[in-house]
Design a protein around this nucleic acid. Structure first.
Lengths: 216, 216, 216, 216
DNA sequence: TATGAATGAGCCTTCATTCAT
DNA sequence: AATGAATGAAGGCTCATTCAT
């Protein structure tokens, strides 16, 4: 069942080249940022002519939007697809948060280029991208806000402003990721991804007080 | 003590105009972002000619750097100048964190334009600015890491990776500020600044567990 | 004698496709004009690939020239093939002019696409086409100039500058056709082709004075 | 009261340069046509940088529209401003038509570049220019149609379709002008402008029949 | 010091044409 | 003969910066 030696069909080649251009775009955008990235640099990496770019993507603007959207979708879906076990104790919550944290970590590590683009360009490029990103935060914020409410009902977290809690959580996670992936400060400090996840979970649960996971 | 009626000296007039240009730049940059902001728009707001801009600032790039630096300095100094009372109990820590939180809040609210520029452009403009911003995070991260170590020595927070804790704290704070100031989501939700500070402090202290501020 | 069911020879199929491409080109050129017309639009209408176009025509430029030439030839030949009866009276002249006018009308109506291309692009495309069109006007002008001279000799029109008369006649006819076919102003006004021809002939004969066709 | 030696004000210099660019644009457009004309060629003639063009005109498209409009306005106003004497006889009509013909001739001869642009590009450039030109023909057509009606009421021309007559007249005039100015065929033939006007007027009045100007 | 007209380098995008399959 | 992906030259336009007045 191996494909080795098999001729590639025309549409497969098309797809391959589209992927190659996309990857080159990820590389260039993540290195230089949207404005400093030139289409000429992208095609040079792929080894195709300038016009070829426009056979696969409408414009520089459009491919950037697609990349950004890819990343945001990846993150939102990772969170949305998370189907935790019955969260009836803080211990289970800790385990499940760790699970989703590890999944998210893997997704990010597998898509470092996309993640870098996101963190580099966040709200900075153009109004319509701003909207894309604001919607992302709103979606994620709403999901977590809702989730926090459920956790409280189940008696595993205390009552508080769940929306604020959601954004605090998002902030913790994203800053740590940025320092890990984009600047490399944390990675250079020898911190392992597992340790990062563990700390994030523990901080969510107990802040800086002694962990009391077994009961609220 | 009034200056009313006093003639302004030549250098004062120079300073005034410099300030006026800077303020216009803040406005335009915060509204449009670095790339969409045009020098022509800045000078139009001040009511001076295009060339005049270059009598006061070297370039668009330079004034942006100055603005960014202003903001980063403001934040770093607010934290650096913080001289907390003897942090020998969690209650005192809570009070002092609230104090510095309120101060930081005031600084940000008084400089919303600068803050918006920071959050909009963070790492997005150009390599040089990346460096500026990475240094900012490193400085802030180091200060908080160090501070966390002290807190632990004093027995008011538990032992953990203090650098990670520092970045988690920074992330919590900045995301909440961004949602408050830049997108306005939290502000629209009717959340008051005091509530924000209180939640940040409590989350730092106890996460989502019942607050146990009086002893570790 | 029917061709129904007969297999088409290879060269017939070739000819068919060539015709199909030509017709599509007429449609696209007449709708959009030379510059706005894209080769991609032409092939799309025929349902063949981009490269196929170049198996039948050398270039966009060349097919346009061919179309233009088709039209000019059609018009010139209609006039050149006109073999009027003995033009020994103004009444006969009127009848014969009406005849050729009707023939020309039919040719134009049967080739509205080509006519539209001519009127839309006349001198506008490129120097080479300018030459083609200028030659057309020269040919037509010379034929009519000569014809006018003969009419005068026969005593059916008065002596005048026959070249000027030729171009005036051409102008009358072409502007009326343009308003009829390209803009549709006259057609919308409810004017019938017969009325147009009649007016053109009468104006040639008597201008705005009471018609005096029977004698000069 | 002479301006000789007077320094030119800033706005005068601005106006001068605008005129210089416009003239260069007329030259290049009339030589090459819209599409073959490059902004780089226009600025080279004026001896300014590429960017300077855009200080005075928004785009290549816009200046072309302005030029076209200039010409159309010139022609329409020449006709519209024509205030003929009481047209109560064919002799007066002949004189007045000759007057307006001479005026129009002068306007065209003084603006040969603009006229050439018009005849070269007529309907060929872009939809919005089409509209401009179609409106021009409609305006001119309506003016002449109306005028023809009045002439008939006064008994100086016979009853006929006045709209058709209007377009026939426009056609006669424009083709003759085109052959005179754009291709130069008539000019090379040694025809004088006065003769052209006289022929046009006579043809309008009597076609190819002996002129009977004194009564209808 | 202030002006604002002038500069010109630089990039995205289009599309007729080619050519390997 | 047919395909359609690939090519690459070319040009309009922007805007930060300069400089003569």
């Amino acid at each position: 069942m191996s494909d080795i030696g098999r001729r590639k069909s025309r549409s497969e080649k098309r797809a391959d080249r589209r992927v190659a251009i996309k990857q080159a775009a990820i590389d260039v955008f993540s290195e230089k940022g949207y404005h400093a990235a030139k289409v000429s640099q992208i095609v040079k990496r792929v080894g195709v002519a300038q016009g070829t770019f426009y056979l696969y993507y409408e414009s520089k603007h459009q491919i950037f939007g697609e990349l950004l959207n890819d990343f945001l979708t990846l993150v939102v879906e990772t969170v949305a697809n998370w189907e935790p076990a019955e969260l009836d104790s803080r211990e289970v919550l800790r385990e499940e948060l760790t699970n989703v944290g590890v999944q998210l970590t893997n997704v990010i590590l597998e898509n470092q280029g996309l993640a870098t683009i996101f963190f580099k360009e966040a709200l900075a490029v153009a109004p319509e991208f701003n909207q894309l990103i604001e919607e992302f935060y709103e979606t994620l914020g709403a999901m977590l806000t809702n989730f926090n409410g459920i956790l409280c009902e189940r008696g595993v977290i205390k009552p508080m402003n769940f929306q604020l809690l959601a954004y605090m959580t998002i902030g913790m996670v994203e800053r740590v990721i940025a320092e890990y992936i984009v600047t490399g400060v944390l990675a250079e400090g020898g911190v392992e991804p597992e340790e990062v996840v563990e700390h994030l979970v523990m901080h969510f649960l107990a802040g800086t007080s002694e962990a009391v996971p077994t009961k609220l």
